[in-house]
Design a protein around this nucleic acid. Structure first.
Ligand code: FES
Ligand code: FES
Lengths: 143, 143
DNA sequence: TCCTAAATATGATTTTTATCATGTTTTAAA
DNA sequence: TTTAAAACATGATAAAAATCATATTTAGGA
């Protein structure tokens, strides 16, 4: 479903959403272990997310990564789109050219309705929404 | 969702379901192009499927691959399980140890219900069921 | 029996993804 | 103004997935 990189990015962003703020930045070395991602790889991912404006960062001593108000209004779809191919969610499950409801492949009707729901959720809920759910103990972000 | 190999395997099996029979076997070179899979790679996949008893084959002149009655009673889940890792459908979307409804990750409730439905469909419908849908023109198997 | 056409077995190569490593730039604080 | 701590940029390596290649075995037909 998601690439490893996407999973890492999602975990990292949600971790920042819960644990960081404009004036409490988090260093890559302090989040690698909690979210269980190889530190050097995480560093690369965070830098890319930062470059693309998904997360924010500050260099130098007392620097680190954090989510601005604007960042936390983005969606997890925004996050995933930075990492994975654009058509990830539009492709036919069997890679039959384009996924097309008028000429559905044998898996289309089984899978697409649910996939659409997931896409919708990823597009609707902001990062903030997710972090609130975590803070309310409704969902969890362990390893 | 599915690996490339799984997609290829599904396409190949469904192609055989529709086009082959015990006494009308199909050679790998005759199905590679129709289902749009590199011939040598397809050969390897078909051999593995055959070894695992998902499809049938006959060597030598007039040989080829086909689906026996028993083969076509298998499910697409059986096909996928030959290729992909066993826990493919049980893993947490964010790879948080085990997917666990009691301690759901932020994506669990968004994605798992639909995934369960898909799994159920893959387990319930036989290959034969799918080939009938294709023959009835309800779904399609182009490229 | 011999030839040939097919699957089978096995391994090599390529491509993609994931991971690691290291030098450069920025910035807070002494 | 010097130092050090952090992100940033870039490239190298490793692992996995996909693809290609080729020698071996089986079996039908001349
Ligand atoms: S046509 Fe294959 S998933 Fe839509
Ligand atoms: S806990 Fe993550 S998908 Fe179930």
């Amino acid at each position: 479903m998601f690439s490893n990189s996407s999973k890492y990015a999602i975990k990292a962003v949600l971790f920042l959403a819960v644990n960081s703020s404009e004036d409490h930045r988090i260093m890559v070395k302090d989040m690698a272990e909690p979210i269980n991602v190889p530190q050097a790889y995480l560093a690369k991912l965070l830098q890319e997310l930062s470059r693309k404006g998904i997360i924010s960062s500050k260099k130098g001593p007392k620097g680190g990564f954090f989510l601005s108000k604007e960042n936390s209004q983005l969606t997890l779809m925004d996050v995933v789109n930075v990492i994975d191919a654009d058509d990830k969610f539009n492709a036919c499950l069997l890679s039959l050219e384009k996924c097309n409801a008028d000429k559905p492949c044998p898996l289309h009707d089984l899978a697409i309705p649910s996939r659409s729901k997931l896409i919708h959720s990823l597009n609707q809920n902001s990062i903030k929404d997710f972090s609130m759910q975590i803070e309310q103990g409704k969902v969890f972000l362990p390893l």
